[in-house]
Deep mutational scan, measured.
Amino acid sequence: DLSALRVEEVQNVINAMQKILECPICLELIKEPVSTKCDHIFCKFCMLKLLNQKKGPSQCPLCKNDITKRSLQESTRFSQLVEELLKIICAFQLDTGLEYANSYNFAKKENNSPEHLKDEVSIIQSMGYRNRAKRLLQSEPENPSLQETSLSVQLSNLGTVRTLRTKQRIQPQRTSVYIELGSDSSEDTVNKATYCSVGDQELLQITPQGTRDEISLDSAKKAACEFSETDVTNTEHHQPSNNDLNTTEKRAAERHPEKYQGSSVSNLHVEPCGTNTHASSLQHENSSLLLTKDRMNVEKAEF
């Protein structure tokens, strides 16, 4: 173990290094160091905050020279020094078990990766560091076993998940096959086929009936047209017969005018059967003409 005197000496050296690497504005270890034209180094955030307070150039807090945003430059070497100082402080805390008085939040800088452990060898070769390295080497064999167990647990979990997924996939297939086998029997399929065939026959029977009705309507229309044509021909046949009657009536009127007047009046009210309204109107006109002729003949006879 380190003596108290040596611990104090190391602590004083760390404090001196820390004062050199402090920012003059925030009085902390410089984060993202930036250098000016006057070779003074500050935190990048502190300098941008200072420049944004005034429009135009501002003055350096140490030498009062003008500073602009374009004049600022990043210093990589200074950032490396800060990183190495942080590593020294971490090693000091691990070796002594004491917390550094002016320690900052170094938890963000710590890294437990194997590459980081290899890099620590180049920091300080001390008894405390050696003991700590031995402890780490002793704890390393235990870690692979834990990793193997965790991997086995994960693989077993994956296997159970896969088996569950396969079961879920197989179950719908089985149910679907069961439904297909038990849903419709052979008799049901035959009945469905016969039902479809009967429906098709009914459709075939319905369509000819409609065509037959249309044919019957067409035949009825044709018969009505033929009947009207026969009526017209009958009226045409009746007209010459009426003319013959008129000639006979004229002759009778010349011989017996008194008797014919009474008979002509009675004939006005008689309509021949089986004739249309057109034929009756023609008869009325003929009878009126005959009456006028008879009157003329009677007057001539009187004179």
Rank of each mutant, 00 (worst) to 15 (best):
K293Q: 04
T230K: 15
F45I: 02
K55T: 08
H269D: 05
N246K: 03
K69N: 13
V34G: 02
S58L: 00
E214K: 09
V7G: 01
E258K: 09
L50I: 08
V7F: 02
L2S: 15
R6H: 11
S139C: 03
L151P: 03
Y260H: 12
D39G: 15
F45S: 15
R212M: 10
S185F: 03
E299K: 08
I20F: 06
G262D: 13
Q239K: 12
K192T: 14
R132C: 01
D1N: 05
K108N: 05
D119E: 01
E254D: 01
N52Y: 05
V13I: 03
I124M: 15
A223V: 11
S35P: 01
A91S: 05
C273Y: 15
R70G: 13
V265L: 11
G56W: 03
T68S: 06
A193T: 09
K134Q: 15
E187K: 02
T160N: 10
K37N: 13
E74V: 13
L50H: 15
E32G: 02
L48Q: 14
E302D: 11
M47L: 12
A133D: 02
C26G: 00
I124V: 09
F106S: 13
E28A: 01
R135S: 07
K55Q: 03
I215V: 12
S126I: 01
T248I: 03
S152N: 11
T248P: 15
Q59P: 05
S216T: 00
A253S: 05
K259E: 11
S228Y: 09
K192E: 10
M127L: 09
I88M: 07
T149A: 07
Q147R: 12
Q201H: 03
K222R: 13
N15I: 13
M17I: 02
M47I: 02
G56V: 03
T277I: 09
P257T: 07
K300R: 10
E148D: 11
C90G: 07
C225F: 11
R6G: 02
D244Y: 06
N297I: 03
A4T: 09
S280N: 12
E202A: 14
T277A: 08
K19N: 03
S113C: 04
L5I: 08
E302G: 15
S79G: 14
I215M: 05
T248N: 10
Q138K: 08
L137R: 13
F92Y: 12
K134N: 15
K87N: 15
Q154K: 13
M47K: 04
D184G: 12
A133P: 08
C63S: 01
G199A: 09
V161M: 13
L136R: 07
N143I: 06
A301G: 15
Q80R: 05
E9G: 01
G97C: 01
S156A: 11
R174W: 13
L158R: 05
K87T: 14
C43G: 02
N276D: 12
E120V: 03
E249K: 02
S126N: 07
D188N: 14
L164Q: 15
F42L: 01
A107T: 10
E120D: 09
N234Y: 11
L268W: 10
E249D: 02
F78Y: 14
E8K: 13
S156Y: 02
T189I: 09
E9K: 02
S79I: 07
K31M: 07
N243S: 07
T160P: 10
S145Y: 02
H40P: 00
P141H: 09
A253V: 14
E271K: 09
Q209H: 09
I88V: 10
L151I: 05
E254A: 13
S264P: 01
E28Q: 02
T175M: 07
F227L: 03
C26S: 00
K31N: 06
T160I: 06
E214Q: 07
Q168K: 15
R70K: 04
E229K: 09
E258A: 04
V232L: 08
Q168P: 01
N12K: 08
E22Q: 01
A301S: 14
D66H: 14
L27R: 01
Q125H: 11
P114R: 13
V265D: 13
F78S: 15
A193E: 14
S216N: 06
E32K: 02
S228F: 01
L158P: 14
L5H: 12
L86S: 13
H40Q: 00
L27Q: 01
L245M: 12
A301V: 14
